[in-house]
């Protein structure tokens, strides 16, 4: 089974501070990590490989320093690593990223399954996974919490919702995005870590891909970021106090007065 995991290197947002004047993230000096949701995708891929055989290829699109994220993925059990990196790709939005990744994945030959984390913790869009499936014209299931069964031709997964979950059957090749309930990622092993230090990172640049320039990078991205700001949270609130029964009565009265119920 040929499995591809797409990961993203993100700033460790638990350590990021916000500049109170500009309301933007202070990224300087902040450690870069593998997007936490992608850890679950890597772990699931490695478990599927351990159970069914095959290879796990890990891929990321990003600047040259994203190599460290790929090496970490290898230390966690991935077999091969691909860094899609070129000045032409800089500034890509989710659509353009998916377009470029799709071309890079086509170059890998037959792929049975693609895994992604459900979303990245920096942009939080959850778009690249599904968009990538669309570009490759394969089915996708988002928010997978369990892979029930997998054969050479199909897989059955549980897709999680707020109210419960659905059981979804899909032919392969397919793409799934995973949530953190799916597994508990392992820590790197010494053998994995030594392999990661020595392994070759395959560089994939613009010239190796069958892509068209108008769709690449910032210029090829349909999204335009006009402004980034922190929403104003100074809404006036009213605190209801008293016994639970009194609070409930006051609340209902308030809502009725405002014709909300």
């Amino acid at each position: 089974m040929n499995i591809v995991v797409c990961i993203k290197q993100v700033p460790d947002t638990t350590k990021v501070k916000i500049n109170p004047e500009t309301n933007t993230l202070i990224r300087e000096g902040v450690e870069s990590i593998i997007n936490p949701f992608d850890h679950y995708a890597i772990e699931e891929a490695v478990r599927l490989k351990e159970a069914h055989g095959g290879t796990v290829k890990v891929m990321t699109m990003g600047p040259p320093q994203a190599e460290t994220a790929l090496r970490e993925a290898v230390s966690l059990g991935a077999d091969e690593a691909y860094l899609v990196s070129d000045r032409a790709f800089a500034g890509s939005d989710t659509w353009s990223t998916a377009y470029t990744l799709a071309a890079a994945i086509r170059n890998l030959g037959d792929t049975d399954l693609i895994l992604c984390g459900k979303q990245a913790i920096d942009g939080d869009t959850a778009q690249v996974g599904p968009s990538l499936a669309d570009q490759l014209d394969i089915p996708f299931v988002a928010f997978v919490r369990k892979v029930r069964t997998i054969t050479d031709t199909e897989l059955v997964v549980e897709r999680v919702f707020e109210e419960g979950y659905e059981v979804v059957q899909s032919p392969l090749p397919a793409l799934i995005t995973v949530v953190k309930e799916i597994n508990e990622p392992r820590l790197p092993s010494l053998k994995g870590k030594m392999k990661a230090k020595k392994c070759e990172i395959v560089m994939v640049s613009r010239s190796e891909l069958e892509v068209e320039d108008p769709y690449l990078g910032l210029d090829g991205s349909p999204t335009r970021v006009v402004k980034i700001f922190s929403p104003d949270l100074k809404r006036a609130g009213e605190k209801l106090e008293g016994e639970p029964q009194d609070i409930a009565e006051k609340l209902v009265r308030n809502l009725r007065d405002q014709k909300l119920i």
């Binding site: 820590l187 010494l190 030594m194 230090k197």
Partner: peptide, 16 residues
């Protein structure tokens, strides 16, 4: 390099 890798792994286990 190997010894540093051992430190890193043990440190990660210790911290996490």
């Amino acid at each position: 390099e190997e010894q540093q890798a051992i430190q890193e792994i043990a440190r990660q286990i210790a911290e996490e």
